[in-house]
Simulated assay, not measured.
Amino acid sequence: MNLINQITHNKFLTELFPSGLTGPVLIGQINLDLGGKLYLNIHTRQKPEIEVLKWGTWGKDYNTIVVKLYTRARKNLHITDWNNVTYSQLIIQQNNDHILLKQTHDSFQLELELTGLIFQECSTYTDDLDIEGNE
């Protein structure tokens, strides 16, 4: 299942990644606020299909894109061994009234049950670590 198709206000993302986020991703940040919102940052090393002038040149000015999302309604959140998070496949399942995001790598496990995701913005940076997290 394509995560981008599950995101509201996804027009820019569908232009960046028309085939979806097909490679491993890193869940870089999860924030919960007192108002009930959950913020989720997904880092990808997937080269975008379009050039965004203000970002510069892929591979020179940046090699990582951060997709910033939020949701007002979450059902469940389960994280095990967060300190071992790394780039890995994100599994997306659509159930009756929610989206299930799952990611596992070695001892790290993440499961998020959400009722919807809303695109907020993208940012970029250059990361010198390889995809497995080694320098």
Results as ranks from 00 to 15, higher is better:
61 D>A: 04
108 F>I: 04
63 N>K: 11
90 L>G: 06
72 R>S: 03
92 I>G: 01
43 H>Q: 14
88 S>P: 06
23 G>Y: 11
78 H>V: 00
109 Q>C: 01
97 D>N: 14
20 G>M: 12
54 K>L: 04
42 I>C: 12
108 F>V: 03
108 F>Q: 00
86 T>E: 05
91 I>G: 00
55 W>Y: 11
55 W>E: 02
39 Y>D: 10
97 D>H: 09
62 Y>D: 02
98 H>M: 09
109 Q>G: 00
49 E>D: 08
90 L>I: 15
66 V>P: 10
96 N>R: 07
90 L>Q: 11
99 I>P: 07
110 L>C: 01
73 A>S: 12
38 L>K: 06
70 Y>H: 13
26 L>W: 11
44 T>D: 09
94 Q>H: 14
64 T>L: 14
48 P>L: 06
75 K>C: 03
60 K>M: 14
76 N>H: 01
25 V>Y: 12
103 Q>M: 14
32 L>G: 08
98 H>T: 04
72 R>F: 03
105 H>R: 15
32 L>M: 10
23 G>D: 14
112 L>R: 01
38 L>D: 04
42 I>T: 11
102 K>N: 07
42 I>Q: 12
87 Y>L: 10
101 L>T: 09
32 L>V: 08
22 T>G: 02
106 D>Q: 14
19 S>Q: 05
24 P>V: 15
82 W>F: 02
26 L>C: 04
63 N>W: 10
77 L>P: 02
72 R>W: 03
112 L>F: 00
51 E>P: 00
77 L>G: 00
95 N>Q: 08
98 H>D: 02
111 E>D: 05
63 N>M: 14
89 Q>P: 08
